[in-house]
Design a binder for these strands. Structure first.
Lengths: 224, 224
DNA sequence: CATCATATAATAGTAATACTATTATATTTG
DNA sequence: CAAATATAATAGTATTACTATTATATGATG
């Protein structure tokens, strides 16, 4: 898998960036260091000026890659979902049995992220933390409908739909496949957040807990 | 219920505000108009300066009630959760049967908000929209642990715990009562958001759909 | 190897934001 | 009526989120 992934590039909607960050060394440094910095200071305090100082480049040079930090967040989270989608498709591809397939899918999307050496400038573990802490902010905006129309959320939507289809294949009579799929994806981020900051509001404390919880939730819904 | 509620005040942690907005006419106008304005322009574009102009008062006067707009958001959302908690307790109080009680609770917290005439300066329908669109932003911050320690989220936590206890009363063997409770509350906000902006990611399209979805989700989990 | 294009860096500037501080003017209360 | 308190007006600051311009470095092509 590692070898194969090395030649794979996660395709991001071209309108999200001004210039493809994968196309230059500076671009890759922007991605690499922004992931570290957003984790350190949070998205609100993160600015292009500070990032410029950190990567020993200039604020205005970063603007040649991304219009603003919102677009950079969209880029980072799209990349994450694309990466997760790749893992999902790869891991479930050969499975014929719909129950097994769905089980594997839920495992993939709810498990704790491990680093992937295929993309050297991207720290997937920290990127997962960014998604947990900041993803909602990318769509809870007044511009969401326009940006959705412009295709900024296609990868996420495709991922939800893939899970929704697997749910449907397992039980075609179940009435809420899309809601269950979106609940699993969003809920997994939420339970992970609660684990770290509001532990009394969750029963997920160990690594595998969110996976067990969502497996139980999904399969009991689909079997009844 | 209406008559009784008229003498009820939703108690908000005193550290959230500088001066109690319920204590003056200006304070109530700040609450009333900020709800309208955040709905209109979104939390990001909302500023105390603009609110001051709108209520024909001064920016600096608003600062005498709230340190910043983040605190105002905490106030508004705490009020909402307090109001919902009151409805929950009131509606489920007399119910002895744990299944019925939980069913009622899920109905209350997932149903579409209707206006409550008891609090004339607060539009609960719009406040519910603010909670859907902005609540996450109030805790997805670098200050969350400190603010949690300071008790800024107590009402929300109490609400989740109430539901969690009802789940536990219905099925003491179920392993994830807190996770299920937080999934229902957060998930309900999320499904409502998807309904309005990403309809392909949800099966909740009509008014009662989130309730039906979460009732099915909860009870099939708890019966298996 | 010269030149031409492009990428990057440096500098400066702007409007808006998120405040703080000070003073003036109402309004309430004791 | 005086004193305290609430509100309003004004001004000021550091930071943010950009845009614009110019300078410099690198690299590709003829």
């Amino acid at each position: 898998m590692e070898q194969l992934l090395k030649s794979v590039k996660i395709a991001i909607n071209e309108n999200i960036y001004v210039k493809d960050p994968e196309s230059s060394d500076l671009g890759k440094r922007i991605i690499e260091e922004s992931i570290l910095m957003i984790n350190e200071v949070g998205f609100e305090s993160f600015t292009f000026k500070k990032l410029g100082i950190r990567i020993k480049s200039n604020e205005s040079s970063i603007y040649r890659y991304f219009e603003n930090k919102h677009k950079l967040l969209l880029y980072l989270t799209s990349w994450y979902w694309g990466w997760l989608e790749y893992q999902l498709v790869f891991a479930t591809n050969g499975i014929q049995n719909p129950g097994e397939k769905l089980e594997k899918a839920i495992e993939i999307v709810t498990k704790t992220t491990v680093e992937d050496s295929a993309f050297s400038h991207i720290n997937e573990i920290l990127l997962n933390k960014i998604v947990i802490n900041e993803y909602s902010k990318s769509y809870l905006t007044k511009e969401v409908d326009k940006e959705n129309k412009d295709g900024y959320f296609v990868i996420y939507k495709r991922l939800v739909n893939r899970i929704s289809e697997m749910i449907n294949n397992f039980n075609p009579d179940y009435k809420y496949p899309s809601s269950l799929a979106s609940t699993i994806l969003e809920g997994s981020l939420h339970q992970n957040f609660l684990k770290d900051h509001f532990s009394s509001l969750t029963d997920c404390h160990a690594k595998e807990d969110p996976t067990h919880y969502f497996l139980h939730l999904a399969f009991s819904s689909l079997k009844s």
